[in-house]
Amino acid sequence: MWTGIFDIINCVLFCVSWFVIFGTAVSDATTGTNATGGAATFFYVMAWIGVVLNIIALVKSKKAGISMVGPILGIIGSALFGLTAAMAFPALVVLIIATVFTMLQHPAKNAAIDNKQ
């Protein structure tokens, strides 16, 4: 569940990332500073934290017999942005879908169902 919440936070961050990076680039050009690298690094670190959290969620989902679709899509979405910020829009779409599947947490299709009553 925490991974799904973090994916939602990353969606919001990825939406504003281009505006922040472009804004700091314009500010750097006018003031002669270099804050763009720090701003971009923050978003990249958040993306790679998302990859790590989704890998942990994948392992825990596999052990619990829960569907692994959400964590797998979360890994892909976070890695897309982690590789390059140019992939922000596809990363957003994949992370939104990943969040839905992560929050569902239904049993995997091949999980053993115990019907003893």
Rank of each mutant, 00 (worst) to 15 (best):
W2R: 06
G4W: 05
I5F: 13
F6P: 00
I8K: 00
I8A: 06
N10V: 03
N10T: 04
C11F: 12
V12E: 02
L13W: 09
L13A: 14
C15T: 10
V16Q: 06
F19V: 11
F19G: 03
V20N: 11
F22H: 13
F22N: 13
A25D: 12
A25K: 10
V26Y: 12
V26N: 15
S27M: 12
T30P: 00
T30E: 14
T31I: 01
T31L: 14
G32W: 11
G32M: 10
G32L: 10
G32P: 12
T33H: 11
T33S: 12
N34F: 15
A35R: 12
G37L: 09
G38D: 03
A39D: 14
T41P: 01
F43S: 06
V45R: 08
V45I: 15
V45S: 08
M46R: 02
M46W: 07
M46A: 13
A47H: 04
A47S: 13
A47D: 05
W48S: 01
W48H: 07
V51G: 06
V51M: 05
V51N: 02
V52P: 08
L53P: 01
L53G: 08
N54W: 09
N54A: 12
I56W: 14
A57D: 13
L58E: 07
V59M: 10
A64M: 09
I66V: 13
I66T: 10
G70Q: 07
P71R: 08
L73Y: 07
L73H: 01
G74H: 03
I75Y: 11
I75G: 08
I76F: 05
I76L: 09
G77Q: 04
G77E: 09
A79R: 05
L80C: 02
L83P: 00
L83D: 04
A85D: 06
A85H: 07
A86D: 11
A86L: 14
M87K: 05
F89H: 00
F89Q: 03
A91G: 04
V93N: 01
A98C: 08
A98K: 01
A98P: 03
A98V: 05
V100M: 05
T102S: 08
T102C: 01
H106D: 05
H106Q: 12
P107I: 02
P107L: 08
P107M: 03
A108E: 12
A112I: 09
A112F: 15
A112L: 15
N115Q: 04
K116V: 05
Q117F: 13
